[in-house]
Amino acid sequence: MTFNWRQSVKLQTFFSKSLAYVLLFIFGIPFIVPLLFVLSTALKTASQVYVNPPIWVPNPPQFGNFIQAWNVAPFGRFLVNSLITTFIPMIGDVFVSAIVAYSFARLRWPGRDAVFSVLLVTMIMPGIVTFIPTFILFSRLNWINTFLPFIVPAFFGGAFYIFLLRQFMLNLPDGLEEAARIDGASTAQIFIRIVLPLLGPALATVAIFSFMARWNDFFAPMIYLHRPHLKTLMLGLAFFESMATGTGGGYGFLSARLHLLMAITTLIALPCVLIFVAFQKYFVRDVITSGFKL
């Protein structure tokens, strides 16, 4: 009797687990296959693109498409601009936010908690309400067609990054800092020598979030960078799309250069995919932190 019962439980878990696998695979199809479809289109010749049913594995794969696509527009220039508007602001996002976060986490000053609750409010505020006035401000400062609208605000720290870093610092033991303070170390020394090295993983998280937000941004570059030689990769890609498919959006397009468009799309998305594969745990963990605290 007991033997049978156990066996049936085993059988049940076996079946439910198999079912889970099958479902996970079936649901996975719409998540992965479109990406593979883009990759496959990127490796086709122009004449293989508009074929029904689609060719999945082009033979031979046209790896030259990537080079050809890269040279359709000055994508090298766009890449440099993307690197500038991503990595210079990232320095501010990471280090200025860390400095501010330290003040909120460890130092006592009057009004600190009130200021921090203001910070929490700005975190959930939609950015658009400040976008038009900031645009007017920057255009009055003649910052249109410069990288300053991206760089300068970043060096005032980001609310969300400050919040993440503060949470992390609150969980650090403060024994080392106390000891250093008793030994007569200044706050700056403690912050640089003791706190920053301990913050490694948290700084990496902020760097990744900052990279993703800035590398993928479309709206701000579109508004601030109009000259062709200042455009970022995202603007370049959107420009190439409208060029390759004709204006008026992407619906129903037929284009002789669709394979090149897919090739450049693959190249531009690739850094994000690589960073995701390399640092998955940061994505998962910090999505959760940000979710539960809101």
């Binding site: 479109p34 995202m234 959107a238 498919t245 959006g249 799309t265 531009i268 995919v273």
Partner: peptide, 12 residues
């Protein structure tokens, strides 16, 4: 994690 621009091209 895909850039929205890339995703827009893909979905079009």
């Amino acid at each position: 994690i895909l850039p929205v621009v890339a995703s827009a091209v893909m979905w079009s």
